[in-house]
Amino acid sequence: MSRLTIWVILGVTLTFLIGPFLIVIFAGMSAGEALAFPPQGLSLKWYAKVFTVESFRASFALSLFLAIFGTLAALAIGIPAAYALNRYDLPGAEMIRTIVAAPIIVPGIIVGLALLRYFVVPLDVTITMALFVTHAALVLPYAVRVVSSSLNNLRSDMEEAAVILGCTRFQAFTKVVLPNIRGGILAAFILGFVTSFNEVPASLFLSGPGVRTLPIDMLSYMEITFDPSVAALSALLAFMSVAIVFIAERLLGFSRYV
């Protein structure tokens, strides 16, 4: 295949995949009042406006909170689970793996609805708590999978060596295993963060007035107003996600773990 053909095919594909963002970025820079591309004049006013909208600020904070702490919670129970599945010969290991991976298979909207009707309402749980639990459950499969993959690459005789040199099992885990899967844990955190932050279907049913994640907030804003601020916000969020992943790739070759 000639070089030209390759670049043409890739050019078209990438334009299709990425072109739309670039359009959104510029649409958000419109100096006019309406959403249009090419924008009528360039201005950053819509980008600035985004920061002043009260509901955006609140939902951003909530999304951030869920992304950080939901992922941390998922890691807290996910890392031991990955370790146990990887190093021990557990009865029912397959079943445990399937259970933990289940949230990915079921469509998000079903998860949201089910949790709303049979978890939030009966147990009278706050919306924030419900969102927290949902996001943690949705991130957990990714956490387990990425950490497992990291553990797979670590030979177990290192832990045995540590034990023979005098460590207890727990010390062997903290002194030898953790430092060497640090990259995997970080990758799992970032993957979980991005997954949680961008999550929509499950959060859709669970969000309520005043308590919304950012994507949901954007959706409802779009239904009312059609100005470029949504474009600007989309562009900003895209930048944020990209920046996080880019930094992660630089720091530890993120792609290895995913």
Partner: peptide
């Protein structure tokens, strides 16, 4: 060395139980 199954189960159970209760049951 990793043949102590109950230890392993104790480590894996929180994740499995959490997903089961919070997710599988409602769904």
């Amino acid at each position: 060395m990793f043949l102590n199954r109950s230890e392993g189960l104790a480590l894996a159970l929180p994740a499995a139980l959490f997903t089961f209760l919070v997710f599988l049951v409602p769904v």
